[in-house]
Amino acid sequence: MNIYLREIKANFKSLLVWSATMVFLVLAGMMKYSAFQKTGEAVNAMFNQMPAGILAVMGISADQDLTSVGVFYSIFFLYFLLLMTVHSSMLGVTVIAKEERDKTADFLLVKPIRRSCAITAKILAAITLVIAYNLVTFISSAMIVKPFNDTGTSLTGPIFYLTSCLLVIQILFLGLGLLFGALARTSEKASGMATAVILGTFILKILIDLKADLDYLDFLTPFRYFKAIDVMYKQEISIPYVILSVVLAGTAMAGTYWLYQKRDLHS
């Protein structure tokens, strides 16, 4: 319990900074909605004349109102993903690797607890922080979007689905960060590996976006696991990807225990 509280406290300030960034992003983005709405009306008119096949290729269904707040908000999904993958993977690396980095590993290990208990406390603390960040995103989004929503139907539900998908991705990247933290010799190496994964999967996403034929590679990049519009409007959360993410995160966390158990900690 003490370790858990300590980790929460140690990362609380950075959570505040990340949260402020998130709120700023949503706020700044929504400010621009009215301009988008105006140009959107022309697009809507044009869409109604286009054959449904072409629309399907572009991932838009014919009855969708492109000027609605929801569609506009769904553009933010990518921004959230970018912020959250960095936050959760770096958090994962830090909670594991910080003891050796700060030369406090011997202090931790002379405590009368097993290594596995220390890891459990750290992982739970990290999960708590990740959920907190997710909640900040959900609550601030729901509150900021509300005044712009003039359709009559509440968007809180769709936003909740979207942030639930984000949580899945967050847990996945948290798992990877934890694993790298236990795997690499120094925290610098671990965060380097996490950076490579984030940039690599992001660039893969761009490639697949450019060439739709490549979409069988989707499973390699979490940036393409969920489609914001489908999630929000059809409640279509692709279960295979949820399972894949959870399994990957679980495996990574199990690996973290295993590696940390055998680790020769430098003090």
Binding site: T21, L25, Y79, S187
Partner: peptide
């Protein structure tokens, strides 16, 4: 640690650019 600070700041500016481009 360097990377969390570095990545956080760079991605923040990158997202501002994405917002700038999209909107």
């Amino acid at each position: 640690s360097i990377m969390p600070v570095a990545l956080g700041i760079v991605f923040f500016f990158f997202i501002i650019e994405l917002v700038n481009e999209s909107l």
